[in-house]
Amino acid sequence: MLDICLKKKQGNFTVDTAFAVYGSGVTALFGHSGAGKTSVISMIAGLDRPDTGHITVNDHCVFDREKGIDIPPEKRRFAYVFQEGRLFPHLSVRSNLTYGMKRIHPRDRYIEFDQAVELLSIGHLLKRYPANLSGGEKQRVAIGRALLSSPVMLLMDEPLASLDTARKTEVLPFIARLSAEFAVPILYVSHAVDEILYLASTVILLSQGKSIAAGSVEEVLSQSDLRYTGFCTDTCSTRPYS
């Protein structure tokens, strides 16, 4: 169960969102650029502090303003895959992958190094440095690094946005396999309908900092008012990945 209520004023923009969704599989946080998706996900990660609200994931509260709970990001165990990868440039791919893994007690690990490397087909890259990777390889390594920290939830902020279509089709199936093979819930931020149709089971629709709809993909995306808000003009016409 993902129970989230956030309020934060950032200049002229206010994030004021509340949603509760069944917290397994891929939950998509969907909205236009500038809808506040990244603000929401970085508050969930603990990189940004909401003015008020609470964040509860599977009955585990990581933030509650009223109760004075604010667990720092390193203790939340929400691994975060950033849009631009953010691999550590001074570390080899292998050291990048083990960075989070080494910081977690072996008892809490649910994925082995070899398992993740095989799942993401990055075995041939281990000795390289991030500067020598292609965009798609970088994102696969970033996903592996996040996964190997055995997170209780995986946050993904438009992990495919910087990739061209060919690279997207390269990475997308890996993300789908993640949620299928491990029970880790994924919160997936995107403004691309085709990615969401391919991956997500639940969608939260965000507009101007507010969550205006939440539910199953079919329910939310078939709502006719979406067309009026312009969500399904270009993106729906592009062919979904198969």
């Binding site: 990189l47 720092p72 990001p73 390193e74 929400f78 975060y80 953010r86 550590f88 910081r103 920290s149």
Partner: peptide, 18 residues
């Protein structure tokens, strides 16, 4: 230094000194 890298390290379980 890109502070985004430091944020990434935090989400991977490293405290500020680490």
């Amino acid at each position: 230094v890109d502070q985004g890298l430091e944020q990434a390290a935090r989400t991977l379980g490293a405290n500020p000194a680490d």
